[in-house]
Amino acid sequence: MKEIIEIKDLHRTFRVGSEDVHALDGITFTIYEGEFVSIMGTSGSGKSTLLNILGCLDTPTSGEYIINGISVNLLNKNQLSTLRNRQIGFVFQNYNLLARTTALDNVQLPLMYNHEVSAKERRERAVAALEAVKLADRMNHMPNQLSGGQQQRVAIARALVNDPVIILADEATGNLDTRTSYEIMTLFQDLHSKGKTIAFVTHEPDIATFTTRTIKLRDGHVVLDEKIDQQSAAVALAEYEKNIQNTAI
């Protein structure tokens, strides 16, 4: 299997006042193509720092990070921007859609920063991405005309549109209710089954059960890295709905 992400003895140190804080203190793991990894940890465990480095928004203090065969340590700011633009799809907790901009234009945004994509191709790919998240009928809606779940699906379409090697999701269900969370996880599982590689940062254990592997961080160290039995989010959703109905009766 192809390695998408290789991390070797990764350190990230912040200087706070006169003290060095080791947010990441020697982390090593590899994510292979087609994996659906959940990265877990409490706040302060270093998972946000790790995500920033995985997303090429931040560079490690020491250690090696290779994404799709490219060593990130050697890149400058502009090269990192291009790398993010071509290799990574971001999904944020608070969706981060541009206000007063249609779903279609929001999805097109990453391709606007890619000279190789023509306006025509940009549109076609955005439409295809919106179809993949089953929002083709809401293309011309503004974010404020969409529900939270729909907004997150637009954000996922935006993460898909540049055909990244990995999708990084940061607490992507954090702002959603249980039912919508299951729907979003169903979508992620659907994408995973089509071969997408996904790293999903969460602090909710039941969300982590929908992935294929869990990496648990504590105080900047990996304390657990194991393959797990993937639960079906679609089944969970169906059970949840049944329970709701039962309660209603």
């Binding site: 921007s81 291009t82 993010r84 935006r158």
Partner: peptide, 8 residues
């Protein structure tokens, strides 16, 4: 956001 998705 623009920077995260690739704006230089």
């Amino acid at each position: 956001l623009r920077m995260a998705i690739g704006a230089k």
